[in-house]
């Protein structure tokens, strides 16, 4: 080891929620995902939908994990992608809301059916489908709440889960209108 060896500071990796506004066109999502896989970054959650039909824009809500340096790199790299217009770091910006929707199918018979309904009620899950041997519940909220609900359901019977990934927005009256007008 050289005498010049710097003391490596072990930096903490934190979870960050990014909100992107991108052109709604083929290839944009591939570019964003390709950036993460090509440069070795992680995607923990991803959610994409059109948000503005007239201007043809989509929002990508993305949860990633890394040191603050890595996150800064990710943001700068994302901005290099031509159809990416806005990159917001919601975690850094201030208070924000993170929400996700889950559809949970539970195959269950006998006494556990009552337990399943009781838990669903406690979590304020909606029952979307019922048969004599199954339920489909719909639940929205923080990912951690969804995790807890799904864990409980799993202990009651065979489950199938479909989740949307996190959708996020900042609290307060701040909007992107001005930024969007510059596109």
């Amino acid at each position: 080891m050289s005498v010049y060896q710097k003391n490596e500071v072990v930096e903490v990796k934190t979870s960050r929620t990014l909100s992107l506004v991108v052109d709604n066109q083929p290839g944009t999502l591939a570019r964003v995902i390709g950036l993460f896989s090509g440069r070795g970054y992680n995607i923990e959650s991803l959610n994409v939908t059109e948000i503005d039909e007239i201007r043809n824009l989509s929002r990508i809500s993305l949860v990633t994990r890394g040191t603050s340096n890595t996150i800064e790199q990710i943001k700068s790299q994302l901005l290099r992608i031509v159809p990416v217009h806005i990159v917001r770091d919601l975690t850094l910006e201030g208070p924000f809301i993170k929400s996700e929707l889950a559809l949970v199918k539970l195959v269950v018979k006998g006494a556990n059916r009552v337990e399943a309904l009781r838990i669903a009620e406690t979590f304020r899950a909606r029952t979307l489908d019922v048969t004599l041997s199954s339920f489909v519940f719909e639940l929205t909220g923080k990912p951690s709440k969804l995790d807890a609900f799904i864990d409980l359901m799993r202990s009651l019977g065979d489950t199938e889960v479909s989740r949307t990934g996190v959708s996020a927005i900042s609290r307060g009256d701040k909007t992107e209108t001005k930024l969007l007008d510059q596109i």
Binding site: S2, Q5, K6, N69, Q73, S76, Q77, L79, R80
Partner: peptide
């Protein structure tokens, strides 16, 4: 080797590509 690169200098970086800075 990066951890021994110019250890005692203040560094200024001019670049047209923001992602090059602190990469």
């Amino acid at each position: 080797r990066l951890n021994a690169f110019s250890p005692n200098s203040k560094k200024v970086h001019i670049d047209v590509d923001k992602s090059s800075i602190n990469k």
